[in-house]
């Protein structure tokens, strides 16, 4: 499970991990829930060695439904969550930056994209910009390599992974491909503390000027039927098969020759690397 066994032989000094959590929204029902990526970020933080984890939430937490979501995070085994109360429709970034400056964290973990509101994914970048720290997107594993250096496994498309090395302090956003978060326990969620802090809220003026509607289904692109001039062309465009017309067929060659042709194709497509 661990990426590197260096940790046990070379124990890093204690460091502080701040995890930012938000109230998510179920993609089907739209109900408030533990945000998927945020809980994966918290799981990642809890699995790091020799760390102290601080969980920070900035938002409108007066609603009992939203409070119950924060208690779900507490139910993952936390003692408390710092809640900086903000008005509805306010920009959480200045408050988060102020809180993080007070905390002097080494590592800040967030989700990649909020589940409610605009969901642009700007929060970690704005925080990194404000603090002057590097920002690493799409992390799936973070391990301390000693001397303030951290190794981050980054999720690439198609299930590939890349290793990055960053010196603390830094901000990392966690990808959906990270390990699933642990279950939340209701009782320990009730025992945990929501510690409120008063930090002024900044109204988000841009978002108050936009129109927000339920998502429309995106129209399907019709294959070049618009360009067709005659009925025959339109018919052809509507019924054409996207499949290829059939390629080269090798029958008489020896097995070695056939294997060579397949091998060349695999190398030219880049799925096999020629070692040279």
């Amino acid at each position: 499970m661990m990426l590197h066994s260096k940790l046990s032989s070379n124990p890093a000094k204690n460091y502080t991990v701040a995890t930012l959590v938000s109230v998510g929204k179920h993609p089907k029902s739209g109900r408030p829930r533990r945000s998927d990526q945020d809980s994966k970020a918290l799981e990642l933080a809890l699995n790091m060695d020799n760390r102290s984890v601080h969980v920070i939430h900035a938002g409108d937490s007066s609603d009992p439904l939203r409070q119950s979501v924060l208690r779900e995070y507490l139910g993952m085994g936390l003692e408390r969550i710092d809640v900086t109360r903000q008005n509805a429709n306010s920009d959480a970034v200045p408050a988060l930056v102020e809180r993080l400056k007070m905390l002097q964290a080494d590592v800040v973990l967030t989700g990649s994209r909020a589940e409610s509101g605009e969901g642009s994914g700007m929060v970690p970048y704005l925080i990194a910009q404000a603090l002057g720290w590097p920002m690493v997107p799409a992390a799936v594993e973070v391990t301390a390599a000693g001397d303030g250096e951290f190794e981050i496994l980054q999720a690439l498309p198609r299930g590939q992974r890349r290793l990055l090395k960053v010196r603390a302090p830094f901000v990392a956003s966690v990808d959906s491909a990270a390990a699933e978060s642990r279950q939340t326990a209701w009782a320990s969620g009730q025992r945990g503390q929501l510690q409120e802090m008063a930090i002024g809220s900044n109204p988000d003026e841009v978002m108050s000027q936009v129109t927000v509607e339920p998502a429309r289904k995106r129209p399907k692109r019709i294959a070049s039927a618009k360009k067709a001039k005659t009925a025959a062309d339109r018919f052809k465009a509507a019924t054409a098969k996207s499949a290829s017309k059939g390629g080269a067929i090798l029958v008489k060659e020896s097995a070695e020759e056939k294997a060579q042709v397949i091998y060349d194709l695999l190398v030219s497509q880049g799925v096999i690397n020629k070692k040279k």
């Binding site: 090798l250 091998y263 020629k274 070692k275």
Partner: peptide, 30 residues
Amino acid sequence: VKRADLSVIGDSQEILAALMAKVQADGAAD
């Protein structure tokens, strides 16, 4: 075969063996 971009007609066992030998000989295997 009609769908494929490259079709190889023959015994799959022989061809896979030849392909594996080819990959291992060129040291390309990950």
